[in-house]
Design a protein around this nucleic acid. Structure first.
Lengths: 123, 123
DNA sequence: TCAATATTACAAGAACTATTGAAATATTGT
DNA sequence: ACAATATTTCAATAGTTCTTGTAATATTGA
């Protein structure tokens, strides 16, 4: 993942409105929601929601599909997983067991996140 | 996790400079880095790095510890894991197998992320 | 104490973002 | 074609953030 992609995704989630929208879409999963439904659920002006959805779509955080006169939005979960992978790349320089005081299974979980680099990096 | 905490964390990662700093600290793991070392490694003005580190510390994204005249910064990984958990709360309304076209083990990984709610939510 | 180094605090300007309201576009059903 | 609905676009304002330079603070070692 490129840095610019990552910053755009994080920027998309740095607003309370967009975070609410994204979490709502995550809950809805594959089904997604249409724009008006999102606005009604979160009790926000439709044009404001549309404004934020446009940005989120452009960033790749959500996807959109036209359904007649409706626009159905869905959370782009694969993108989120890539983002987390990007963030934890070379986590602890190949020594995930070092990860602070967390229970081992909570940090750098090989089952969920991409392979951890085993190349320590020093500067 | 509260919404404001989450937005602050995402905002902290929405700048290329801060994202570079955080990823660098993630790589260094438990060892962390002192401010000047970070600035030198990323080839940035020390005061600019300090400015961003202050914000990141305030957001809880990194921790800081004094070492004589040095300030040693470390990535706050537990906070990041909580953030991911917050984001994927009630993922797919309790039906993680619905998560798009991802291989099942990549989405809503029970092994790594907190328990998935089993209560479907409809609006 | 004094000089040197590491880091932070402050101030100013440009650039960007969020919110709102009004208008425009597109689709549906009659 | 026409009216109704869903959604987006546009414009304007207020507020916020980023960067840079300069000054201040704190620690170290002589």
């Amino acid at each position: 993942m490129e840095k610019q992609t990552a910053t755009k995704l994080f920027e998309s989630l740095s607003s309370g409105v967009r975070l609410d929208i994204y979490r709502l879409l995550v809950k809805c999963g594959r089904g997604g929601m249409v724009a008006g439904q999102i606005a009604a659920t979160l009790d926000l002006p439709p044009n404001n929601v549309s404004f934020h959805l446009k940005g989120m779509t452009h960033a790749g955080l959500v996807t959109v599909e036209q359904e007649g006169r409706f626009q159905r939005y869905r959370a782009n979960l694969p993108q989120m997983l890539e983002l987390i992978a990007y963030l934890t790349e070379e986590c602890c320089a190949g020594h995930p067991e070092q990860c602070l005081t967390l229970p081992a299974e909570s940090c750098c979980p090989e089952a969920a996140l991409p392979p951890i680099s085993t190349t320590p990096s020093e500067s």
